[in-house]
Structure formats: structure tokens, C-alpha cells
């Protein structure tokens, strides 16, 4: 057992990093969906945009990273606001139309990004202070991934605290649970939606800026992370921040440890995880949405 653990330690720590990366994506996706049933299929594009920002602006200095983060946040807030504004008018028409619109936007954005950055994967270097490898319990491991786990972990805790402890978080949770009730109390749920859309999008682009050295930007990355975060949301439970965290950490392990242990069957593991969790808890690991 111990030797197995030792043999797979790198994969497991990778899984934590990957899980936290997915969490930054899944939160926005999950909350927007939980609050207004808007499925944002352009959410993966936001990660990709953030990663390209990191590629374009990071020059190995701390300042470069900081600038990339600020620009990334700006791109995220603008992108989220734009998506909210575009999908809002379709609300009366139905959620399928909204989802299809975001899918169209995702295709357009993917094409534009290829036109600007080219069709190849662009490896992105972390700041100079975080390059190289270090020793972790006798295994050589990239320093940046450990740093990423630290930063993204702190970010996850911050988001968790915001949604579980603050009054804004309480409002969002109440909207997920029963939006009519919240609307009846006089709260403009559309404003809340705009805010959450922009916040979730910014979180995704920040995930992209920080994640670029781990999952480098390139065509198709948007699709990959979108699907993974959709699985996270389904597994974790719609509209729940703790659920997204649990789901992300689980899917992170499936994608790294699973691939290491059973390389050929990795795609089926992902489906298997979904199957097992949904058979056990039909509404996902943590569910807030009341079924009518």
C-alpha cells in the first residue's frame, strides 16, 4: 500500500492541482446554471482566453504575472458581462436557445483565437522564481505546480468563504434554491445574475492565467476544460460551491491518477465516475436545487 502510494504520489499531487484548476472553472458554470438555468458553453473559452493572456504578457517576471492577472480579470469581467447581456434577452425563449447561443459564441471565439495566436500549443513559462523542480518526499516535482496548489487552494477557500459566509453568498444560495422566492422579496435577480456571471467568468480567466504553465493554451483546450468542468458540475451538484470543490478534486484524481493506473480506460473512468456518483446521489454530491 505504502509503496503504491509512493509510486503514485506524483499523479495524486498532480490530481490536486488539476482539481483546483477545474474548480476555478466549475464555480462560475455551476452558479450561473444553478441560478438561472443558463448553460454557458463558452465557459471553456474564458479559460483559454486567460491562458493566452498569460502567454502574451508573462515575461518571467512577477510584474508580468501581475499584469497578466489584472488583464485576465478584465477580460473575464467583460466576457462574462457580455455573455450575460447576450443571453438575457433569450430568457423568455427558453434555455436551449441560450445554450446554443453560447455555443455559437464559443465557436466564433475559438476561430478568432486561432487566427490571433496560431494553431499550435503555446507552452507558457511560470515566473522565473517558480521554474525548476524541487524534491517532494523523494520525488522530483515542478515548483510551479506546488505554488499553483497553494494559490488556487487559497482562492478556493476565499470563494468558499464568500459563498458560504457572506451575505452576498447567502443571496446567491437562496436564488439557486428558490429564485421565485428571492424575486418576490424585491431583489433584482438579474443584477445578481450579471454579478455572478462576471465573477464566475473572471474566476475562469484567472484560472487560465495561473493554469497556463500547467495546461498550455492551444486549439481544443477550451473544449477539453469545458467538458471536464461540466462533468465536475454534474458530479458535484448544480449550483453548489462546496459541490464544485468536491467534484473538481474527484475529477482531478480521475484524470491524473486514473490515467496513470489505467491509461487505456481513462475516458471510461470519467464516465464511470459520473455513473457511480449519480447512481448514489442523483442530484450530485451536494445539492441545493429544490426539485419541483
Amino acid at each position: 500500500m505504502l509503496s503504491w502510494l509512493d509510486g503514485n504520489l506524483v499523479s495524486m499531487v498532480d490530481g490536486v492541482a488539476y482539481g483546483l484548476l477545474l474548480f476555478t472553472l466549475a464555480v462560475g458554470l455551476s452558479l450561473v446554471f444553478g441560478m438561472m438555468d443558463v448553460l454557458n458553453l463558452a465557459h471553456g473559452t474564458l479559460y483559454l482566453a486567460g491562458a493566452y493572456v498569460a502567454y502574451a504578457l508573462s515575461d518571467g517576471s512577477w510584474l508580468g504575472l501581475l499584469v497578466a492577472l489584472l488583464v485576465g480579470i478584465g477580460v473575464g469581467v467583460a466576457g462574462g458581462g457580455l455573455l450575460a447581456a447576450l443571453t438575457q434577452p433569450l430568457a423568455a425563449r427558453g434555455h436551449l436557445d441560450q445554450a446554443l447561443l453560447t455555443l455559437g459564441i464559443a465557436f466564433i471565439a475559438a476561430d478568432v483565437l486561432v487566427a490571433v495566436f496560431g494553431a499550435q500549443v503555446l507552452p507558457t513559462a511560470p515566473p522565473d522564481g517558480l521554474t525548476g523542480r524541487t524534491s517532494m518526499l523523494g520525488h522530483s516535482y515542478p515548483v510551479y505546480r506546488l505554488a499553483f496548489i497553494g494559490i488556487a487552494g487559497a482562492l478556493a477557500l476565499l470563494v468558499y468563504a464568500l459563498f458560504e459566509r457572506s451575505s452576498i453568498g447567502a443571496l446567491v444560495r437562496a436564488t439557486v434554491a428558490d429564485r421565485d422566492m428571492v424575486r418576490a422579496t424585491g431583489v433584482d435577480t438579474r443584477k445578481v445574475l450579471f454579478g455572478v456571471f462576471a465573477f464566475g467568468a473572471a474566476l475562469a480567466t484567472v484560472g487560465g492565467v495561473l493554469g497556463a504553465p500547467i495546461l498550455a493554451p492551444g486549439p481544443g483546450v477550451d473544449e477539453t476544460v469545458l467538458v471536464l468542468s461540466l462533468v465536475v458540475v454534474v458530479v458535484g451538484g448544480l449550483g453548489s460551491v462546496p459541490g464544485a470543490l468536491l467534484g473538481a478534486l474527484l475529477i482531478g484524481q480521475v484524470q491524473t491518477l486514473g490515467v496513470a493506473v489505467l491509461p487505456t480506460y481513462a475516458p471510461f473512468l470519467l464516465f464511470g465516475a459520473m455513473l457511480v456518483v449519480l447512481a448514489w446521489r442523483p442530484d450530485g454530491l451536494v445539492s441545493l436545487v429544490r426539485r419541483g
Binding site: L39, L96, L230, T264
Partner: peptide, 28 residues
């Protein structure tokens, strides 16, 4: 049966994942 847990856009979400998993599986 996994997709049947959901309706509406959530169904879209799960089927998208199924499609993508099949695509990745075909390559692997």
C-alpha cells in the same frame, strides 16, 4: 440511465460529456 437523471439543459450537459468521452475513447 446517467443522462435520464436530468432534463432540459442539464440533459444537454450530460450528453455533451458522453459525446466528448466517446470521442476521446475513439482516439485512445
Amino acid at each position: 440511465p446517467v443522462a435520464m437523471r436530468a432534463r432540459g439543459v442539464a440533459f444537454l450537459m450530460i450528453t455533451l460529456a458522453i459525446g466528448e468521452i466517446a470521442y476521446v475513447a475513439a482516439g485512445r
